[in-house]
Structures are given as C-alpha cells and as structure tokens.
C-alpha cells in the first residue's frame, strides 16, 4: 500500500500549492469566465430570435456552458504541466529523482492533484453557467464531473509531456497559446458538431475536448451528438495512453 501514500502525498502537495497561489488560480478561471459572459451572453442577445433554439434545441448560453466547462478543465490541467518546469528550476525535482519511490507514482500523484484543482475550477464555472442559463439539468453534474476528470487527465498528461520535453517556462507559455487556442476552436465548444462541414468535422473529431463536451451536453442539456458510449471509450483510451506516455517520459527524465 506504499504507493497510495506516495500518490496521495504528491497530490496533496499540488493542492496545497494551488491554494497558496489563489491569484494565479483566479487568473486561469478568468479566461473561460470571459468567454461565458461576453461571448455567451453577447451572442445570445445579439442574435435573439434568429432561431438558435430550433438548431440547438436550447438557448445559445445553455449550449455554451458545457463547452466552456470543458475548456476550463482542459486549459487549466494542461497549464498545470508547467509546474514540472518550475520544480526543475527551483530544484525540487532533484528531491523527487533521488527518492526510491517509483517515478510512475510520483507523476500519477502530481496529475491527480492538478486534475483536482482543475475540477474545482470547472465546477465553479459550471455553477456560474447554471446561474446564467437556467435551463440546465443539475442532476447531471456528478456524472459530468467524471468526464471532466478524464479530460483533465488528458490535459495534465499532455501538459506534463510538453513540459518535460522543453524545460523552459517561456517556451512553454509561448507554445501554450499555439496549442490551446486552436484546440478550443477546432472542437464543438462554440458550434454544434452536426452543423459543421466535413473538412472541419474531421479535425474536431480528433480533438478529445469534442468528446468531453459532447458527453457534458448529453448530461446537462440532453443534447448528445456522438453518444455517451463512444465518448466514454474515446476519453478513457486517450487518457490511459497519455498518462502512460507521460509516466514513461518522466521515468526517463534527468537533470542533465
């Protein structure tokens, strides 16, 4: 049972660090909040009566909330990968590398802790979203959080892999905007999958965020396009692959 203590301790460490840097946490939640407020409300009111409801089956803001929740989840967990670089620069990585604990558990603990902090942020966005768009099915939230967790594992795993391969804060931050922005737009966050042209649909279907958003729409507004079954399989498989790769990279990392 030693491994549970290693994973747990690393997760708690990530959580403690998160709660001690609330300002940073607040800044990561600002971006999705802006999207929700400015874009969601703006769009809904500007195109009132244009027939969103007949296309989406619900108001645009209700349609947007699950997407923005997934955006929050993915972006926040992806960004958390940067802590690996901080640890390298501030030396803490050495403390971990010289320990006899298997590195796979260390990285699992980190990811778990980071995903939890992202979940807190996603939940916050969800609550605000529900307050704004009062037609969401609240009882879908618990299961929705499980899909968020899977998406978070994917985000944190990918972020960690990027962090391990570049080792520079500046490069990481520069690359993040290159990666995050297209990933958010080439997905079903802002537009419905079933109204996309094929050339757009194919890359969107290669994007894990699409599946999480689809699942959340199924749960929160009862508008699923792909289907919860496929969503689940895709997310679970991708999460496993990403975590295994991230663990593999972390095991091979050195301070040279």
């Amino acid at each position: 049972m030693r491994w549970i203590s290693v994973i747990g301790a690393m997760a708690i460490r990530q959580l403690k660090r998160f709660f001690r840097a609330r300002a940073r946490a607040l800044s990561t939640i600002m971006m999705p909040l802006m999207w929700l407020l400015l874009f969601g409300i703006g769009f809904s009111t500007a195109f009132r009566g244009v027939g969103f409801r007949s296309i989406l089956g619900t108001s645009y803001i209700s349609f947007l909330v699950p997407g923005i929740v997934c955006m929050t989840m993915f972006v926040s967990s992806f960004m958390s990968g940067i802590s690996v670089i901080w640890d390298r620069q501030f030396g803490f990585l050495k403390e971990v590398l010289v320990a006899p604990a298997p590195r796979t558990f260390i990285i699992l603990g980190r990811v778990l802790g980071d995903v939890t902090t992202s979940l807190i942020q996603a939940l916050l966005i969800m609550v605000i979203g529900i307050a704004l768009a009062h037609s969401l099915y609240v009882y879908g939230i618990p299961v929705a959080l499980i899909y968020c967790l899977l998406l978070g594992m994917i985000g944190a795993g990918l972020g960690t892999m990027l962090a391990l391969s570049i080792n520079s804060i500046e490069a990481f931050q520069a690359l993040v905007s290159f990666i995050i922005l297209p990933l958010n737009f080439i997905s079903n966050i802002f537009y419905p999958l079933n109204r996309m042209p094929t050339w757009f649909k194919i890359p969107a279907l290669l994007n894990p965020i699409t599946y999480a958003t689809d699942a959340l729409r199924g749960l929160l507004i009862h508008r699923c396009v792909i289907g919860l079954g496929i969503d689940s399989i895709v997310l679970i498989v991708v999460a496993c692959v990403v975590i295994v790769l991230a663990a593999y990279m972390f095991r091979r990392t050195s301070i040279e």
């Binding site: 301790a9 050495k94 604990a101």
Partner: peptide, 26 residues
C-alpha cells in the same frame, strides 16, 4: 542527500516539506 542548490518546496512549510519527504520514502 543535501544538494548544492536548495531543493525544498518553497511554497510549503517546514513541516510539510518533511512530511512529504517521509511519505515519499514510505
């Protein structure tokens, strides 16, 4: 090991640093 440059987690307390180390070492 005490490395040349500090390897503590600066954002944790003294106790938390020791606790984390103890947990990692089982």
């Amino acid at each position: 090991v005490v490395f040349q440059d500090i390897t503590l987690d600066l954002n944790l307390t003294v106790y938390e640093n020791l606790w984390l180390h103890g947990k990692i070492y089982g």
